[in-house]
Design a binder for these strands. Sequence first.
DNA 1: TTTTCAAATGCAACAATGTTGCATCAAAAA
DNA 2: TTTTTGATGCAACATTGTTGCATTTGAAAA
Lengths: 139, 139
Amino acid sequence: MMSEDSIKEYLRERALKATPIRVGLLSLLSERESAIPYSEIQENLKSFDRVTLYRTLNALIDGGIVHKASTSGDETYYALCSQKCSKHCHKHEHIHFKCTACHEVSCVHIEQAIKISIPNFQIEEVSVEVKGVCDKCCK
Amino acid sequence: MMSEDSIKEYLRERALKATPIRVGLLSLLSERESAIPYSEIQENLKSFDRVTLYRTLNALIDGGIVHKASTSGDETYYALCSQKCSKHCHKHEHIHFKCTACHEVSCVHIEQAIKISIPNFQIEEVSVEVKGVCDKCCK
DNA sequence: TTTTCAAATGCAACAATGTTGCATCAAAAA
DNA sequence: TTTTTGATGCAACATTGTTGCATTTGAAAA
Ligand SMILES: [Mn+2]
Ligand SMILES: [Mn+2]
Ligand SMILES: [Zn+2]
Ligand SMILES: [Zn+2]
């Protein structure tokens, strides 16, 4: 949950104009804990043109503020990056979890570092998507 | 690489009619080591209707013969399942690797079992997608 | 071999996602 | 306040994926 002012500041810090759709998108993403599917974002920002929304998403992904949290399949989900991300370093040390009960997709930090090694392959990036039941739905 | 006859037999074993597009799709998939993106499959089977291709892909996925090897993002890739898969058990103990040099997507078996645990979450399925440089492109 | 019929196909139509070009507009700097 | 670069809206387009329905065909039964 970020205030409108801190969102505007955050954008300008990263050399992005603080336009209404950008502020709207970032407040939407910041007021949720989970990632949001494209269709729902569009629904929430339907006063803006769909093309502009796509350009906005891409601009913010480019700027290291937003990332896709796809979870293989149907819809594309979007979530806020940690403040550590930037245009030039856009790495995530978390997994994406899709709950089969509530269907929420969330970014989850895990303790164990995932180390994959394959003989004669050079590993650059590992992404892990997990399905299961989230803590809220478990209890 | 499977012969046309063994493909037909394989389909009938799983209660699927051995139609031309199914045989065509399976020979295409079996003559490659890597997964194939949808667009390329369509290009190779363009004598068939696009709708039929989609229905074929779904039927074979349903039957435990083919699986998606998505590798987060743009295109959907398809690959043959191991012969162990079936309609009712469709599990894969391998990762999907996308080479940033040759852009091939492949199913790669790894030795280490990936164990993810998150406190208070129930894990059902873990899928791992890795980017890097494949063995062919490394040497 | 011929008959039969459920299953598979092709076609038309549709919906959703995503992209590009271009004229206009506005945020932030000068 | 003016300037100007970058952001927006609109039209048009491409691709992916789905559904309904009439027609055809694979494979089993007769
Ligand atoms: Mn994430
Ligand atoms: Mn695979
Ligand atoms: Zn849940
Ligand atoms: Zn390669």
